[in-house]
Nucleic acid binder design. Structure first.
Lengths: 239, 239
DNA sequence: CGTTGCCTTGAAATGGATCAATTCCGGTGG
DNA sequence: CCACCGGAATTGATCCATTTCAAGGCAACG
C-alpha cells in the first residue's frame, strides 16, 4: 500500500478560519479546545488518485476532510468494486472504532485532510461529551445516508439511480455552501457506475437519455439541472 | 399508524438478569446506573406483524431490542420495499439523533423491547462518556454492516447474495449466543427478497439450487448449512 | 376437505450487462 | 497553429441473469 501524501507542518496553521469549520466535528469545540486539538492533529495533502488508507489495514488515525473529494470503497476478491460513498469537506473518516479500516479511501483530485492519531483523539474526546455527541450526530447522518443508499441499490431502476444520485449530490453540495443547479461532478463515469451498482455504459446512456429529454445538460466535469423538479420526480424519492 | 404494543409495568423488572444484557448498550453501565436507567425505561411487547414505529413519524423514543426480531425497512411511494436490516436482541433502534424516524420497524414474531424517551435518555447520557462511547461503538458496527450490505446489493449476484446473507445471519446469531450450523430464519421469503434486492421467486429458486447442490438443507423455518465452507466461498467474501 | 397463505417451479419477457467500435477532448510536440 | 495521441465517454448490437407472469403444491386451520 502506497501512502503518497506529503506531510507538511505538524498541525494546521489556522483552524479558526478553516473552510470546513462549521460542518466538521470541530463545530462542537470552543476556541481553547480547538487549539488543543490542533496540537494533536497534522495537516496532510494527497495528489489526485493517491490512496489515503486501504481496507483491512490497521487504522491508526482518524481523518477529517478539509478540501477536495475522496472515494470510499470496498473491493471484492475478484476486483469488483463498490464505492460506498464520496467524502466531502467536513466528513469524518473512521467513525467506526474498529481496529482495522473497513474500506479504502482515495483522492479524487487533490485533497487536504486533518489527521489525528486514534489514541490521542480517544483521550481528547473521553471527557468531552459535547464532542462525543457531535460524533454521534455525524455517525447518525452517515448511517441515514448509507440506509438511503441501500434503498437506491436494492430497489431503484438505472434511471432512478442516476436521478437520485444527482439530487443527493446537489443537496450535499448545498450543505457545504455550493448552491445552484450547476453540479460539478469531479468523479469519473466509472466511479459513478461503481457507486450506483451499474456499468459505465449504462451510466453514460442514462445521462444521454436525460439530456435528450431536456432534463439535464452535460458539460465536461459536470451537469446542469435544467429541470430539477423533473429530476426529483424521476428519482422516486422517499416515503 | 397503529401502535399495537401492550405496555406492561413502568420499567423492566430485572435488568440484572436480562438476556440481552452484555450485547445491548447496557453493557457500558454499572449496577447503579443500570438501576437509574431502568427507572427511565419501560418494557413493551408487540405481537407478530405489529408496527413499532413508522418512517417519517416524530421519533420520541429509543428502543433496545430485548427479545425477538424486527424488520427495519423503507418504502418507496409506489410501495416498493427495501428491508435495510433485521434487528436482533441487543440492537439499538434510533441511533440517528434526527427528529424523525428514518425507517419503519415491525415485529417478526413476538418481540420485547426496552423503550426510553429520547429526552430522558439524552439527559441521562449527557455526562456519561462511557455510555456515549458504547453508543459510538454500536453506531460504528451498524455503519460497517450497512456498508457491507451496500457492497452486497451493488456488486453481488443472486447466489452470492443468498450465500452472504446466510453467512452473515449465522455470524449474527453466533454473536448473541445461538451457535451452530442450524439457522432459524424467522422471516418470510418475501422479507429475504426485499432485504437482498431480489424477488421472492429468485430467492426461492436460489435456495432450491443450493439444496440440490447439497450445500444447505431447507426445513420449515430455517436452513442447515451442510457445507458452511462452500457457502462462504459462494458468498465471495470481502477483501 | 375446502380455504388461505406461503413457497416452489416453469416459461416468457426485459433491463442492464457485455462486447465492440467510434467519438470527444485535453495535452503535447512538431 | 495544427496533427497526433491516449484516456474517457458515447453509442450500437447482442446476450443473459433476473424479473415477470402463470401455475401448482403443501401445510395449517377452520
Amino acid at each position: 500500500m502506497k501512502i503518497s501524501g506529503s506531510r507538511e507542518g505538524t498541525h494546521w496553521q489556522s483552524c479558526h478560519d478553516c473552510t470546513a469549520r462549521g460542518f466538521a466535528i470541530c463545530a462542537a469545540l470552543n476556541n481553547t479546545e480547538l487549539r488543543e486539538l490542533a496540537q494533536l492533529s497534522r495537516h496532510v495533502r494527497f495528489e489526485s488518485g493517491a490512496t489515503v488508507f486501504a481496507q483491512a489495514n490497521i487504522a491508526t488515525s482518524f481523518f477529517s476532510v478539509h478540501k477536495g473529494i475522496l472515494r470510499i470503497y470496498k473491493l471484492l476478491p475478484d476486483s469488483r468494486r463498490q464505492i460506498v460513498s464520496f467524502a466531502l469537506p467536513g466528513d469524518f473518516l473512521g467513525l467506526s472504532t474498529l481496529p482495522r479500516h473497513e474500506f479504502s479511501a482515495d483522492a479524487i483530485g487533490r485533497v487536504a485532510l486533518c489527521q489525528v492519531a486514534k489514541e490521542s483523539f480517544a483521550t481528547f474526546s473521553e471527557n468531552r461529551p459535547r464532542l462525543l455527541c457531535r460524533m454521534m450526530e455525524l455517525a447518525g447522518r452517515e448511517l441515514a445516508r448509507a440506509q438511503e443508499h441501500i434503498v437506491l441499490l436494492g430497489r431503484r431502476s438505472a434511471e432512478e439511480k442516476i436521478a437520485s444520485f444527482l439530487i443527493g449530490w446537489r443537496d450535499r453540495l448545498n450543505g457545504i455552501g455550493r448552491d445552484g443547479e450547476i453540479l460539478t461532478l469531479p468523479m469519473k463515469r466509472l466511479d459513478i457506475a461503481d457507486h450506483l451498482g451499474l456499468t459505465i455504459e449504462t451510466v453514460s446512456r442514462t445521462f444521454s437519455k436525460l439530456e435528450r429529454g431536456g432534463v439535464i445538460q452535460i458539460f465536461a466535469g459536470g451537469v446542469v439541472l435544467l429541470d430539477a423538479a423533473r429530476v426529483e420526480s424521476l428519482s422516486a424519492g422517499v416515503s
